[in-house]
Amino acid sequence: MSARNDARAEERARRLITGALDGELSPAERGELESMLDRHPALREELQRLRRVKEVTESMALRPASEEVWRDYWASVYSRIERGIGWVLLSLGAIVLVSYGVWMAVSDVIADTEMPWYIKAGLLAVTVGGVILLVSVLREKVFVWRRQRYKDVDL
């Protein structure tokens, strides 16, 4: 119980120190922190140490990008949007054409009376297997896209 209280007090002290550094404490919280600092000199040292870190980070800024970057920015985004639409159309068209080609080839082979039965059976197995794999991959992609678009990242 006492260990849990200590952990809570420690966490509270950390948050108050952080708030003090960023000027985001209420008057009551500032009083609470002052009283903590009076009771625990180590906390005051910690506050000073982190204040120096804050000064260092405040003395730096993100490197500014050139004006050229902003001038061309929307054009680049637009190209990406356009390319995305292009890929979708290209993929759909390719799927339709390839499916038609496979169907025609399979029909020809089945209609060929001179072709041995085991060649026909092999071709049929390859075709059905390919369709099953394609549907399975598509279903998985759709499932991941709908449920978890960025599966590597926890929110």
Binding site: R14, R15, I17, T18, D22, R49, L50, R52, K54, V56
Partner: peptide, 27 residues
């Protein structure tokens, strides 16, 4: 970020503590 303010403060504290350790000889 969709997180409580207390969590923001804790993460910020941890970040600065880690920076303090890394920059110890310069501070």
């Amino acid at each position: 970020l969709g997180i409580p303010i207390g969590t923001v403060m804790s993460r910020l504290y941890a970040a600065r503590r880690d920076l303090a350790r890394s920059l110890e000889d310069l501070l």
